[in-house]
Simulated assay, not measured.
Amino acid sequence: MLFAPDTEVALRSLVNLINTAANGTESLTGVAELRVFLDTEGFTGSREGSEAELLSVKRLRSQLAALWTANEETAAKGVNQILTDARALPQLAKHDHLDWHLHATPQDAPLADRMGTEAAMALVDVIRSKEMDRLRVCAADDCDAAVLDLSRNRSKLYCDTGNCANRTHVAAYRARKASGSE
């Protein structure tokens, strides 16, 4: 295990949030889509269900996307700013079907603060572990989606948003076939 289970869950949710705007496609087009995203990712706590809340999540997404490929120093500053803005105070929590894990904001804090704090706490573990190179961008030429590499051998190159790996491998095969090298 590379990271604690709650850190891995938060990192996967972070990737999924960033990728809601991957490749120039906006998938959080309204409050209903945000609700589906939050339900799919298992976010608990209060929700306004308002356009203002949606806009705050989109602003957070932009902040976090910038940290995804930042160097360690820049990422640390960004994480600290998110935690400061949310007035984060880490506490152990156990609720619903979840065992002990960290919450750094109350369940009634604004959604973007809770989401940002959860992502920032996960990034704290990544930075402290010197594992920033596990946060990548898809290797496909026509894709800018975020990639989280939790593989043992650090070999994950392609995103989970589509079929980038398959498409790239098929194109390489066809190029080799056309050149006669296979």
Rank of each mutant, 00 (worst) to 15 (best):
A4T: 09
D6T: 10
D6R: 10
D6Y: 13
T7G: 04
T7A: 14
T7C: 13
E8W: 02
A10L: 07
A10R: 15
A10I: 05
A10M: 08
L11M: 11
L11D: 05
S13F: 00
L14D: 00
L14N: 03
V15G: 07
V15A: 15
N16T: 11
N16L: 08
N16D: 15
L17Y: 11
L17E: 10
L17C: 12
I18K: 06
N19W: 09
A22N: 05
A22E: 03
A22Q: 04
N23S: 08
G24Y: 10
T25K: 13
T25L: 12
E26M: 13
S27G: 03
S27P: 01
S27H: 11
S27V: 10
L28T: 08
L28E: 07
L28N: 07
L28K: 06
T29Q: 12
G30P: 04
G30C: 09
G30L: 06
G30T: 05
V31I: 14
V31Q: 01
V31G: 00
A32Q: 13
E33Q: 15
E33M: 08
L34E: 03
R35V: 01
R35P: 00
F37V: 06
T40A: 14
T40W: 09
E41G: 07
G42A: 09
F43M: 06
F43K: 01
F43P: 02
T44P: 04
G45S: 07
G45K: 05
G45F: 05
G45W: 04
S46L: 11
R47N: 00
E48G: 11
G49T: 00
S50A: 11
S50E: 02
S50Q: 05
S50H: 06
A52I: 07
E53V: 01
V57Q: 02
K58T: 11
K58C: 07
R59N: 12
R59L: 12
L60A: 03
L60W: 02
R61W: 03
S62A: 14
Q63R: 15
L64A: 14
L64G: 02
A65N: 10
A66S: 15
A66G: 15
